[in-house]
Design a protein around this nucleic acid. Structure first.
Length: 566
RNA sequence: GCGCCUGUAGCUCAGCUGGAUAGAGCAACGGACUUCUAAUCCGUAGGUCGCAGGUUCGAAUCCUGCCAGGCGCACCA
């Protein structure tokens, strides 16, 4: 609908510009009006045109309206204020949308396939321990974003990058191995650098069942740590998958960093870059304004990322000659490009914010693509209980895992809460508030609307009132403000999905659903659906059926359940 | 010191690729259940949109500077 109107206006505007011999074009952008006196949609084109045409905005608006060919759905248009064009839609046209919704069902709001491959990389928590709440927020946002992009017609692959290489895995292996010795009755001291936590002991216990203790002792240190490390990673990944499953999140691809190294891909990439002259052996200046105790200037292999927009060149190899995390990461992103993903979206924690430019620079150098990956930075979660900050310390054992939070407050409440705010604003998450099933918890507000309608439809059916043939329902009975307000809101759903997908902002769907639920609840209080007037009842039944459908579709995009009873 | 994010009602947040009188929820106060679910609704009150300049017909929105909070800043991931 919105697009049709924009096209109609655009034609008229282009014609006007053509007459005046102006070649530059001005794009028509419609907005939904905030007040109903302003009609259903508003266009402000006349104002920016005032300058180029050297005419008063009002006069321009008059000219536009004189030539515009409205689609049938438009009742009329007025000029208001300094030069707004306000468009009113026919009631009948508005009502048609209800039939479309009921007939489309779960497909309402889904765009046509775009045949564009998008890779969404998210979570990618290190496989060295349980996930915390911050990971959970990224997980929920990444998952909802994937769903929104799918609804918007993209071909989405959800991907998890497993950081199963590097020092941390060695530390993990050491931590587990020491616990294995301890479980065998040996007296061991666990060094400070090792991971604490009971899950390490559990992994150690499981591995003792699996591996022959004597054989392990006979191995070289390196071989043994390999053996333990790979199994510990697998165990942690299983734990992470379970926690994600509890939140309703699954992945299409798990991509191993270790394999990237083992297969020689990282090394060959570095060699290729050397050949291309994008790598040189040099020394970086020490970072300014930050004191580093044991700073030692050293020459190393540096990638000329500055040529592609970065602030400094970045090292590809460490002092010991092994590749840096960055080197592997650009090999990984190159791989995504080779797999023909037109868009790569990375959902990262805010603590990786400083990493964005260098990866984008590297990707640009390798593929020529600008602004890839598109990075969604998810800000921190401040966990509180009754307003008191929950101190997170791994050492003190007061660490709260994602699994604990989900178990305590429930997946729906966790997901919805994480999705009601923009990713880039910090989130206060109170355990007690999220647990309460009251009006402080927006998830229930939306779900309640869904349950209410479900109940109503059941009740109507019990009294012999059903929709029957959709085309036979006479929607002209829907005449009140509340009814058209609700219809208008339903019509805005596809636009909301589109915008959310375009800007990678799934929270828009959550905000929309809260607004839709509010409009519905207001309608509910003013109007009875089931009544003596069968024709009216049917029309309203159609309205609430469509409303329930949109609530369900939206909740599904957020991965939140749609209860029929509460 | 530099870079990124944030600053809107007492609290939590929308509104931010410029548009009409800045909106919700919670908390406060006052109302609405013999009628389809009161996990709901209606009303009242609550604002120097961090501060100061600038651009513009028009700024919460764009630009500059400052203030406050968060995150980050070689050889970790």
């Amino acid at each position: 609908m919105k697009q049709q109107l924009e096209q109609a206006l655009q034609q008229s505007v282009d014609m006007l510009l053509g007459e005046s011999g102006i070649s530059e074009s001005v794009e028509v952008q419609l907005t939904r009006t905030k007040q109903k006196e302003h009609g259903d949609y508003a266009a402000n084109v006349a104002m920016p045109l005032a300058k180029t045409l050297k005419m008063a905005p009002h006069a321009i608006a008059v000219k536009i309206l004189a030539t515009v060919q409205w689609p049938e759905a438009v009742e009329g248009a007025d000029i208001a204020g300094p030069g707004f064009i306000n468009i009113r839609l026919r009631k009948a046209a508005e009502a048609k949308i209800l039939k479309a919704i009921v007939q489309a069902g779960s497909a309402y709001g889904m765009a046509e396939p775009k045949h564009i491959k998008v890779n969404v990389e998210f979570v990618s928590a290190n496989p060295t321990g349980p996930m915390h709440v911050g990971h959970g927020r990224g997980a929920v946002i990444g998952d909802a974003l994937s769903r929104v992009l799918q609804a918007s017609g993209f071909d989405v692959t959800r991907e998890y990058y497993i950081n199963d290489a590097g020092n941390q895995i060695g530390v993990l292996a050491e931590s587990v191995w020491l616990r294995m010795r301890e479980l065998q009755g040996e007296k061991v001291t666990i060094p400070e650098r090792c991971y604490p936590g009971d899950y390490i002991i559990e992994i150690a216990r499981d591995l003792l069942q699996e591996g022959d203790d004597v054989e392990l002792l006979a191995m070289s240190d390196e071989a043994r740590l390999q053996w333990v490390g790979s199994r510990a990673v697998a165990a942690n990944m299983q734990m992470i998958r379970n926690d994600l499953a509890q939140l309703g999140i699954a992945f299409d691809v798990f991509f191993s960093e270790k394999q990237l190294h083992d297969s020689g891909r990282v090394q060959s990439l570095i060699e290729k870059l050397k050949t291309d002259g994008l790598v040189y052996f040099g020394t970086l200046p020490p970072p300014k304004g930050k004191e580093i105790e044991d700073y030692q200037a050293a020459s190393q292999w540096l990638f000329r990322t500055t040529q592609f927009g970065d602030d400094v060149d970045r090292p590809l190899a460490k002092q010991d000659g092994t590749a840096t995390y960055f080197a592997a990461d650009i090999a990984y992103h190159e791989d995504k490009a080779l797999r023909k993903f037109e868009r790569m979206i990375d959902v990262w924690g805010a603590d990786h914010g400083g990493y964005v430019t260098r990866v984008q620079s590297a990707v640009k150098a390798l593929t020529g693509k600008d602004q890839q990956p598109e990075v969604v930075l998810v800000q921190m979660v401040n966990l509180t209980r009754n307003g008191q900050p929950v101190r997170m310390s791994k050492r003190a054992g007061t660490f709260v895992t994602l699994e604990e939070v989900v178990s305590e407050v429930g997946a729906d409440a966790v997901r919805f809460n994480f999705l009601t705010r923009r990713a880039e604003s910090q989130l206060d998450f109170d355990l007690e508030t999220a647990k309460q099933k009251n009006d402080e918890n927006p998830v229930y507000y939306v779900q309640y609307a869904h349950a209410r309608i479900s109940n109503m439809i059941d009740k109507a059916a019990a009294e012999g009132l059903t929709l029957g043939e959709v085309d036979a329902v006479d929607l002209s009975h829907l005449t009140s403000d509340k009814e058209s307000e609700l219809t208008a809101k339903l019509m805005a759903y596809p636009e909301t999905i589109e915008k959310a997908a375009e800007r990678c902002e799934p929270y828009r769907v959550a905000i929309y659903l809260m607004e839709l639920a509010a409009v519905f609840h207001r309608f509910y209080h003013d109007h009875r659906v089931i009544g003596d007037d069968v024709a009216l009842s049917k029309a309203r039944l159609m309205l609430v059926t469509a409303t329930r459908q949109v609530l369900a579709n939206g909740l599904q995009l957020l991965g939140v359940s749609t209860p029929e009873r509460m």
